[in-house]
């Protein structure tokens, strides 16, 4: 029971934060018509769907670890859907048009492999490759381009991925909430405001600091 309440609280927090973020990214897309926002919105939509499914499965009593066909589990299918969107999103961000079909093909073979073989190792390798390197690239690009949304996405991938690695319930849940908060902060423009202030403001601050030092001396 306590476990179910824990899931309920966490998933509701996730859904609330992501719905708020979705509203903002969708609004940004409507205002700017920048296709990146629609890609982010689709990704956020997939995360919300995952949370809703997790909630439903715990409430209705569907076991996400149950096999449906061969060695394929419901939980793995949901994770695959999420990774397809994540992979596609990364390719879109890096404008790798020629690789757009790769996520679908990789998923097809991973699912087919899982149907005939119980090993989860290929999926773990795939998930690791899709989590940490993209987190690094997105954070690096976000910092370079002073893009708060990209920083939020990068932190989200990082915390979300770490959560899957550290399979201690408390840390896993904490990292999931952290990932949602990090993403939400990116969507509301927190990082632009506090991590990357205007260059003019920056110069003012630096100037004030130097002048104070000079006066002191």
């Amino acid at each position: 029971m306590a476990f179910e309440i824990e899931i309920l609280i966490i998933e509701i927090i996730m859904i609330v934060l992501f719905v708020l973020a979705l509203r903002l990214t969708f609004k940004s897309w409507r205002d700017t018509k920048n296709r990146m926002y629609i890609a982010v919105s689709v990704y956020v939509g997939a995360v919300i769907t995952n949370s809703i499914l997790t909630l439903l499965s715990s409430m209705v009593g569907i076991d996400k670890e149950a096999y449906i066909v061969g060695y394929l589990k419901i939980g793995i299918i949901i994770a695959h859907i999420l990774f397809v969107v994540q992979f596609e999103f990364i390719l879109y961000l890096r404008r790798l048009t020629k690789l757009y079909t790769l996520p679908f093909i990789a998923t097809f073979y991973l699912i087919l492999g899982q149907l005939i073989n119980p090993s989860i190792i290929p999926f773990i390798i795939y998930a690791t490759v899709l989590t940490y390197p993209p987190a690094y690239f997105i954070l690096r690009d976000g910092k370079k381009n002073r893009n708060g949304l990209a920083i939020g996405m990068g932190l989200f991938f990082l915390f979300w991925g770490l959560g899957y690695v550290i399979q201690i319930s408390f840390i896993y849940n904490l990292l999931r909430i952290l990932s949602a908060i990090a993403f939400y902060l990116g969507a509301i423009g927190f990082y632009e405001k506090y991590l990357f202030p205007d260059q003019e403001d920056e110069e003012k601050i630096v100037g004030t600091w130097i002048s104070k030092l000079v006066i002191k001396e």
């Binding site: 048009t97 757009y100 079909t101 073989n117």
Partner: peptide, 20 residues
């Protein structure tokens, strides 16, 4: 978008064969 689709698909088939 489809430049390498068939090669990916075929590559996947070969990798799947090697492992399973």
């Amino acid at each position: 978008s489809f430049y390498y689709t068939s090669l990916f698909f075929y590559g996947g088939m070969v990798i799947l064969f090697l492992f399973t």
